[in-house]
């Protein structure tokens, strides 16, 4: 296995609050990493650092062999990074299918000059993207919603649209921020299946989730974060046997 993402000595603090304290992590191709920890442990901040929402103070992030920690967000995404958001962040005045089309790797409307002078390639790109979007909507079980406004769907459905949107670009690394929040019933199985399929296709997947049984179901390796530090790594059962970690998770006394 080869590392898709390699994080070395990553540090970030906001004033006195340390959200990443010399974090060292790597995500391998085909691997699903579960990221757990109490609220404020720095899980979402780590996603924000990797995807470029916030710049790190020190350390390095390598994505598919490219040093990306100083690159703008869209640049990292194009190298091969896709993420979802805790609160879905749908484009609220757009339909579901349009939400997905934005995320395609070769976007048809990238420049006005292209639209004006290369009509045919633009049409071809749109055609490809639309077909891909339909397949993805089918996979997350929301094909019938494609023309609805994304913002009008339920939270759980928006989560699934967010997942489908992140899959549009065939990124080598997927960062999924609480994909299960608000998701119930059959959709639960659907999401597990989709995430597994993506890992089998050779992508590195990292999942932040509070639902421990979901993490146990899906992850190959689980990483425990607390106060910006990676405290432990192993299987969920190994981590939950450690009484110190469970105390930290559930807000017991500090060690």
């Amino acid at each position: 296995m080869s590392a898709i993402v390699r994080i070395e000595d990553l540090h970030k603090s906001f004033g006195g609050i340390v959200v990443a304290d010399d974090v060292n992590l790597s995500f391998e191709a085909g691997e699903i990493v579960g990221l757990i920890g109490p609220n404020g442990a720095g899980k979402t901040s780590l996603f924000n650092l990797i995807s470029g929402v916030i710049p790190p103070d020190a350390g390095s992030i390598t994505l598919e062999g490219h040093r990306v920690d100083q690159l703008p967000m869209h640049h990292r995404a194009r190298i091969g990074l896709a993420r979802t958001w805790q609160n879905t962040r749908m484009f609220h005045s757009m339909s579901v299918i349009d939400n997905l089309l934005i995320a395609t790797r070769r976007y048809p409307g990238e420049s006005l000059a292209r639209i004006l002078f290369r009509r045919r390639s633009v049409d071809a790109f749109r055609q490809q993207a639309t077909e891909k979007a339909m397949v993805l909507l089918e996979r997350v079980g929301l094909a019938d919603k494609m023309h609805e406004m994304a913002i009008e769907l339920s939270y759980g459905q928006q989560k699934r649209i967010g997942l489908a949107r992140a899959l549009m670009s065939d990124a080598a690394c997927l960062l999924l921020d609480e994909p299960m929040a608000g998701v119930e019933g059959q959709a639960y199985e659907t999401i597990i299946r989709v995430i597994r399929e993506e890992a089998q296709a050779g992508r590195a997947v990292c999942v932040v989730e509070h639902n421990i049984s979901f993490i146990r179901d899906i992850s190959d390796r689980t990483v425990f974060m607390f106060n910006g530090c990676v405290l432990a790594s192993g299987s969920v059962d190994e981590l939950t046997r450690d009484s110190q970690l469970t105390d930290l998770y559930f807000g017991g006394e500090h060690p």
């Binding site: 869209h74 005045s93 757009m94 949107r165």
Partner: peptide
């Protein structure tokens, strides 16, 4: 709608 989400999609 959302510049950050837009950029994060490349």
């Amino acid at each position: 709608n959302d510049e950050e989400a837009f950029s994060a999609l490349g």
